[in-house]
Design a protein around this nucleic acid. Sequence first.
DNA 1: AATAAATAGTTACCCAAGGTAACCATTTTG
DNA 2: CAAAATGGTTACCTTGGGTAACTATTTATT
Lengths: 142, 142
Amino acid sequence: MDAHRHFFHKYFTLYRPFVNELNRMLEDYNLYYAQWSIMYYLDVYQSMTLVELSKMLYVEKPTVTRTVNALIKLDYVEQIPVRDKREKRIQLSKTGVHVVQEVRKVFDQYEQEIMTGISNEDQATVIRVMETVRDNIIRKGD
Amino acid sequence: MDAHRHFFHKYFTLYRPFVNELNRMLEDYNLYYAQWSIMYYLDVYQSMTLVELSKMLYVEKPTVTRTVNALIKLDYVEQIPVRDKREKRIQLSKTGVHVVQEVRKVFDQYEQEIMTGISNEDQATVIRVMETVRDNIIRKGD
DNA sequence: AATAAATAGTTACCCAAGGTAACCATTTTG
DNA sequence: CAAAATGGTTACCTTGGGTAACTATTTATT
């Protein structure tokens, strides 16, 4: 078997245990991973529109609408007024900011645990490879 | 941001474009990725029981039952008789073997394309890291 | 040998997370 | 100013997973 074939297989066999575990941790905050990923971006970028999220997450607009609505209902996210009346621009609410801090603590802890024994250099390699692969996939796809 | 935080984010942002693209390719064979992953294992291990698959795939038994039934309906997979009457042991059918060959060709081609510019050494590093991470996740989880 | 426990699989439900098609409002462009 | 583009929503559908409760069979215990 060639290395690249191993790569894809390994990539996907990691997904299920990984996302299961993260969802289990998010239970305490009434969140699922798909919701968390939006909060993650809002933490990084302060505020975003649904279309921006849609492109970042690589999912369709209706999916974003639904997930954002769930976050608004949880009071983790709020809409902010903006000139263009078509746009829905959102940011983390006060509660949301707090939840992000909490979840980050939990995730950082967990992430460090499961990365034990992997050098910073190797971590950097993996990140670079995944970035490249993603770019390649998207470039070919569209 | 620490490296490990980058790692997790990168890992998940790759997933959606990746699985979308693979599903698009599998359309020609009336397959979805979840079904393909079972055929992949059957190709590697010749024959497997549903419980074995369940453990390998890290999904519950009912999920395996459903997916396998779909593959049997497609005539890509067939049951083989076995001493223990509780067990359902399956293997690729003749058609299934053929389909695996075809899909492999398509995937290998695609995979090589999107891995361009990544050295064999880096690919090996990524594989090793993902294996380690998966083991760590599963060890912590249970 | 008879019973209890374990194992393999199925059935009947439920839910998260995505998708498409069609649409409305608003803004931008020709 | 009409046409096209953009941002978002609604309605409906699908994949792919889950849990609880069950049957059938095999294995272990008494």
